[in-house]
Each structure stands twice: as structure tokens, then as C-alpha cells.
Amino acid sequence: MSEKLLEIKDLRTSFRIKDDYYAAVDGVNLTVNKNEVLAVVGESGCGKSALAFSVMGLHTRAKIEGNIMFKDKDIANISPSDLNKIRGKEMSMIFQDPLTSLNPLMEIGEQIAEVLLLHNKQLSKEQRKEKVIELLNKVGIPRPEQVHGQFPHELSGGMRQRVMIAMAIANEPELLIADEPTTALDVTIQSQILELINDLKQDMNAGIILITHDLGVVAEMADRVAVMYAGQIVEIADVHTLFTNPKHPYTRSLLNSVPNSNEAQDKLHVIQGIVPSLQNLPREGCRFSARIPWVAESEHEDHPELHEVNDGHFVRCTCYKHFDFPDNEEEQQHGIS
């Protein structure tokens, strides 16, 4: 059994809209082990980024309930100053858009040095600079001495993301959260960045949470996968099981809707309806039921729970047992909106 690094217990992250709170993350339980990549997949609005932000404590106006046990501390209920000792040191984060995530008015070197300064007061200015150059080298940035004094807009998208990664690994964190790290990048740059994250993972023995909507990225990177829909986890499995033996209707629909470069498909599968907005999330019963109306109501659970169908493979609700794609995809398609 691998060593547990992070354990999220019944996490609920709610946002206030007008006078009510709406949970974007609604009762999530999840563990991340050392030296493991856990991918969290879902479409926009499923709560995957809200989950990542909750772990990092980056929500400024959300109500967070539940526990997030990081090693021996509950970082969901911790003072801001204690949290700041952990963020950037023991856990760190990479964001989606490296251009907006870097301060446009600060030199690259200064931005990376800041994270060293914050967590290691002993280093002298020269030592910090040395370390920054070393980090830039490590993430594969050519001419690091020059880049040190440059500004974000002078670098390409791929280089900027490398800078973000250098910043994230500067203090050798045990947990790294990557929120759509390659979505804003070209495909060849994407493969280079993923390769880099892979190399670093082996180096650092860290746990990685990879937030993404791209199933190809999941297949290439993940050890385990959690699929999220409407604020809940609907399926968790190791990556091979998830791609070869997916159970939940949402997982299966998602997999069928991706244009697959390996085999020719005539028609892509279309999921009926739309992802509900935060205010309109169904809070009772199976949250996916509205999008598979041909599955009878009686086949859903009243209070859908995660069932362990195999060792380490969990699926929410019993509807998966009765789910099949409709024969006539045509018919299904015109029923939209």
C-alpha cells in the first residue's frame, strides 16, 4: 500500500449567490498518495478547479466545510499564516494560463526568487539567484542567465509554463497541483510540458493532482483517475480500468464523445442537454439522470453513493448497471435543447 499524502474528507465548497450558498464541490472524498498522479477529469462547471483551489486555500469568498488532511495537518481549518508556511513549500500549484499567472511587471528571476525567499530566509541574494538559474536549467529553459532578467511577455507560452513549473518545484514540494497546465499551449509544447512534469515526478517522489478536461492527457499521465460531474465524484479507478472498463454513464459518454485518433468513427456520441449551472445543479437523486432520460427513474438510487465494484474502482449510483447507449444516435441528437 502506498503512502497517503493527502486525504480529502467530505469536502463541500460553497459560493454565495445573492442570499444563498451553492456547493460547487459537494461532498468529495479523495486521497492522493506519494509518487502518484491523480487526474481529476470533467467538463467546465463540474467543480474540478473549485476542488483544486480549495486544497490550495485560494478561495477568498467561499465557504469550505469538511477536512483536508495534508500529512498530519487539516489545511481546511488552519490559520492563514500556518497555511502560508505550507503553500509554495510543501505544496504548490501550476495554473492554466502562464501569461496571466505571471506578474507582468516583475522580472522572471525575481518571481521565482520570491518563493525561495518566502520559505528560506537564510539564503543570500546571490544564493537565491544561483538557485533560480539552477531551476531554470532544470525545467529546460535555454540561456537561463538571460531569461532571469526578462519579463513574462518576452517569453513564449511554453517557456512561461516552464517558468511556472520552476516556481512550483523551487522548494521541492510533496504535493503538486496542476490545473489544466497545457490547455493554453500548442500540442507539441503540451507534450514537452507533460514530459517535463513526468520527469520531475520521478525526481521528486511527489504526489500530483492533475486537473484536466482532456482525456488524452489523462491517458498519458495519470495513475488513478477521478471523474467529476456536478460537484461530485462519479467514478474513481486506476487509469487502465477507467479507459478499458468504464462504468458510470457519464464516463462512458465522455469517452465516446472524443474524436479518437486511433479508430475511425462515423458519429461522435452527444450527451443530451447541458451541464447545469451552479444554481441549477440537481441536489437530489442521481445528478446525471436528466441527461440519460431513457434510463428509468427506478434504476437510479434516491441517495446515490459510491459503490466499490472492484478493488479501488468506485462508481456512484446504481444506474450504471442499466445504462446502455440508445441504438438510434440520430434520434438522440435532435432531442437536444
Binding site: 500540442v187 507539441t188 492527457v217 491517458a219 485518433s261
Partner: peptide, 14 residues
């Protein structure tokens, strides 16, 4: 290079 960079949806071919 472009074709090679496409992520493969089959984790077994990783």
C-alpha cells in the same frame, strides 16, 4: 512531430 505529439487515448500504449 506534430502527429507524434497527439496524446494517445489508450493508457496501455503510454
Amino acid at each position: 512531430r506534430l502527429v507524434a505529439a497527439i496524446p494517445d487515448i489508450d493508457p496501455n500504449k503510454r
